[in-house]
Amino acid sequence: AELMTLTIVKGAQGFGFTIADSPTGQRVKQILDIQGCPGLCEGDLIVEINQQNVQNLSHTEVVDILKDCPIGSETSLIIHRG
Rank of each mutant, 00 (worst) to 15 (best):
T24W: 08
V9M: 13
E48T: 03
G14N: 14
C37R: 04
C69K: 15
Q51N: 14
T60Q: 12
R27A: 10
I65W: 08
P23S: 10
N53K: 11
M4S: 07
T24C: 11
Q26S: 08
D21V: 08
E74I: 03
N53V: 08
Q52I: 14
T60G: 13
E61D: 12
I65D: 01
I71L: 06
Q26D: 04
E74K: 03
L32K: 02
L77V: 11
T7C: 11
K29V: 05
R27C: 01
T24H: 13
T7D: 04
Q26W: 06
M4Q: 07
L45A: 07
I79Q: 00
D44N: 03
I79C: 06
G11T: 12
V47A: 14
I78H: 04
L66E: 01
E48Q: 07
I34S: 11
V63G: 08
G16F: 06
I31A: 06
L57W: 05
T75C: 02
E48A: 03
P23A: 07
F15Y: 10
N56Y: 15
I65Q: 08
L6C: 14
E2C: 10
L40T: 01
C41Q: 12
T75P: 04
T7Q: 07
G82E: 15
G39H: 15
E48Y: 13
G39M: 03
T60N: 14
D44Q: 01
T18L: 13
I49Q: 00
L32A: 03
P23Q: 11
T5Y: 04
Q35S: 12
D68G: 09
Q30P: 06
Q52V: 10
V54F: 00
I19Y: 04
L66C: 01
D33V: 04
T24Y: 11
K67V: 06
P70M: 06
L66Q: 01
T7K: 12
Q26L: 11
V9A: 07
L3E: 14
Q35R: 13
I71T: 10
Q52W: 07
L57G: 04
V63Q: 07
A20M: 15
D64Y: 15
R81T: 04
N56S: 09
K29G: 12
S58P: 04
L32S: 14
K29P: 00
F15S: 04
T60E: 09
Q26P: 14
V62A: 08
S58Q: 09
G82D: 13
D68Q: 15
T18V: 11
S76M: 12
G43S: 06
D44G: 00
V9I: 07
K10E: 01
N50I: 01
Q26F: 03
M4V: 10
R81C: 15
I78P: 00
D44E: 00
G14P: 10
S73A: 13
G11S: 11
G82Q: 15
D21Q: 14
N56M: 09
I49H: 00
L3C: 07
V54W: 00
Q35V: 08
E48S: 12
K10R: 06
I19H: 15
G43Q: 15
T24R: 13
Q51F: 08
D68Y: 13
L40M: 02
S73I: 12
E74V: 05
Q13V: 08
T18R: 11
C69R: 08
L66R: 00
E61P: 00
L57P: 01
F15D: 05
S76K: 11
H59L: 12
T18C: 10
I78Y: 12
D68T: 04
T5D: 11
L6P: 03
P70G: 03
I34H: 04
S58R: 05
H59I: 05
Q35I: 03
L32C: 03
Q13K: 09
K10V: 08
V9P: 05
K10A: 06
G16P: 12
S22G: 14
T7R: 09
F15Q: 09
G39Q: 15
D33S: 11
N53A: 07
V9N: 03
Q35K: 02
G11D: 13
T18F: 04
K67N: 11
I19G: 00
D44M: 01
A12P: 10
F15C: 06
E2R: 07
G25W: 01
T7L: 08
I19A: 01
D33M: 05
I79M: 12
L66T: 01
G14I: 04
C37G: 02
I65P: 00
V54C: 07
S73K: 10
R27I: 14
I79S: 02
V54S: 02
Q55N: 14
I31W: 01
T24S: 12
T18I: 13
I79D: 01
T60D: 05
T24P: 12
N50L: 03
Q51M: 10
N56F: 06
L77H: 01
Q13S: 11
S73H: 13
D68M: 14
N56T: 11
I79K: 01
E61A: 04
P38G: 08
K10T: 03
V54P: 00
G72C: 14
I34L: 13
N50K: 12
V62P: 01
R27S: 04
S58T: 05
D64M: 02
M4F: 14
N56L: 09
K29T: 14
D44T: 00
V9C: 05
I78V: 13
D21S: 09
L77A: 05
T24A: 12
L57T: 05
T5R: 04
V9T: 12
I8H: 06
Q13C: 09
F15I: 09
V9Q: 08
I71P: 09
S76Y: 15
